[in-house]
Simulated assay, not measured.
Amino acid sequence: MKYQSKKKAVVLLADGTIFYGKAVGGDGTAFGEICFNTGMTGYQEIFTDPSYFGQLMVTTNAHIGNYGVNNDEVESDSIKIAGLICKNFNYDYSRVAADGSLQDFFDANNLFAVSDVDTRALVAYIRDNGAQNAVISTDVDNIEGLKRQLAEVPNMDGLELASKVSTKEPYFFGDKNATIKIAAVDIGVKKNILRNLAKRGAYIKVFPYNATFEELSAWDPDGYFISNGPGDPQPLKEAQQLAKEIIARDLPLFGICLGHQVIALANGISTYKMHHGHRGINHPVKNLLTGKGEITSQNHGFAINREEAEAHPEIEITHLHLNDGTVAGIRMKNKNCFSVQYHPEASPGPHDAEYLFDQFIENITKAKVTA
């Protein structure tokens, strides 16, 4: 067990609001958009989710680090959050299956964290005033300097971040002898999405965020997938053009989260930045096609325009978020294309929505039969 630092630290929001805490390790400063996740478990998966790139994560669960880390419980090759803000940081852990402590994991990834923050008050403030840029730092005597630096941090609205987390070169995932080939565009893909496709008999080739239809189709895939990811979907012009070309050819297409927003934009449906987003593992969604409810894992700060989706002659809304009525899923009426705003692969979270992967595989299988 490592000695807990008692060094004072500050959480400074862009509007000038200040919260105080203590540095988890040594000195540090980190900038990003502040947001919160309400999940009671799965912190390692959350911290390594590429969709959180550039964000300061506030965890609402009172204890973080209590079960350590496990090398198999990652969603990418490194920590993707910009920094952590929590109430109680556990330097020791009690899980037999753990490979190490969370502090060691943070140290290996050069991540700065602040604990002993009144996270209930901070989350309530974000809920009332919206997500905004912030800085966490041990430089508590330089508030004015931190404010000047914070003013230079770009806002998430309009910010393209997919290129920061996407693979640089194509790679393969799954069994090369599988009967189904899927071309996946990585705009921040989680590993568990690839696992879910592979365990359903798919061999996946993962392409960079700006890959063209010609590059994907040269592999002769049976289906196409556009992943989750961070940032604003509007600057992703290459991905939008790719979606348009796949849709025009009526090829099987599935999108998750940021991929869902890209598909909406490809159909002329606008997106907008939400007040504080959806981030947690207990979000209620209604499947309008079956009438059934789902408890879902969600992580997004943007959403698609519901009125425009309802008015679109080729779009059918398939899922709605029951807390605020935002669009949680769509499908095209005359094309082999559908998408959801939430995370059916969860990790962490419930498995209520895993059927969507089965649906995608079924769409591909039917398309192969009729081809």
Rank of each mutant, 00 (worst) to 15 (best):
V340S: 05
A184P: 02
C257R: 02
A9M: 05
N334R: 12
F225E: 01
E310P: 08
V285M: 08
K244Q: 15
A367Q: 06
H283N: 15
I295T: 12
H343C: 06
D104Q: 12
A248F: 10
P233A: 09
F112L: 08
G28I: 11
P221C: 03
L161P: 03
L322T: 13
E152C: 14
I295M: 13
F36K: 06
T290I: 15
E354C: 07
T365P: 04
K335C: 07
L253V: 03
L356Q: 05
Y209I: 04
F360K: 06
R195H: 09
K6S: 15
F31C: 06
F53P: 03
G42A: 10
G26Q: 11
F106H: 09
V24C: 11
P252E: 00
T41N: 07
V114Q: 04
E75Y: 01
A239E: 00
K205S: 00
G28S: 13
Q240Y: 10
K87V: 10
N129R: 11
I317K: 01
T59W: 02
T138H: 08
N267Y: 04
G201F: 00
T41G: 08
N66H: 15
S101N: 10
A371K: 14
A82G: 11
F207I: 02
Y91H: 12
K368L: 08
Q103F: 13
